[in-house]
Amino acid sequence: MTTSPSEASTVIEVRADSDVVRVRQSVRDFAMAAKLSLVDQTKLVTAASELARNTLVYGGGGEARVRILERTGVAGVEVVFADEGPGIPDVDLALTDGWTSGGGLGLGLSGTRRLVDDFELDTAAGEGTRISIVKWRR
């Protein structure tokens, strides 16, 4: 499967380590197509890498959907991660700096949120997690 940025959107299955790398590469392609600055590309790709790993490790696998958005003439890149895992029991706690459910460095979600412009999290116990991030062109 190719991940050409000219496509309206790309969906990447997140089932293995190598898929995390594929998410990074696809998000980089879209970020370049949206003409984000190099620093903003790097922030978005890093955020996507963190969330793709969460999808894999905590969500038991899922998918990432990447697309270019247009808002009042400004382009941005959106990445949506969805899994059907156990969900996040306490969202406020999970978004606290330094919190970790173990194994991580405790800066997953809060650190990731700082790297992007928009960050939306929907989760329900036993029903999975959906996280959407957007980086807009400055």
């Binding site: 590309q41 790097t42 922030k43 963190e50 700096d97 800066l107 990731t112 700082r114 790297l115």
Partner: peptide, 14 residues
């Protein structure tokens, strides 16, 4: 380390 990587690392909290 590339400058963009350094900026991102610090903002991420690493």
């Amino acid at each position: 380390m590339q400058p963009a990587v350094a900026i991102t690392l610090v903002e991420l909290g690493l």
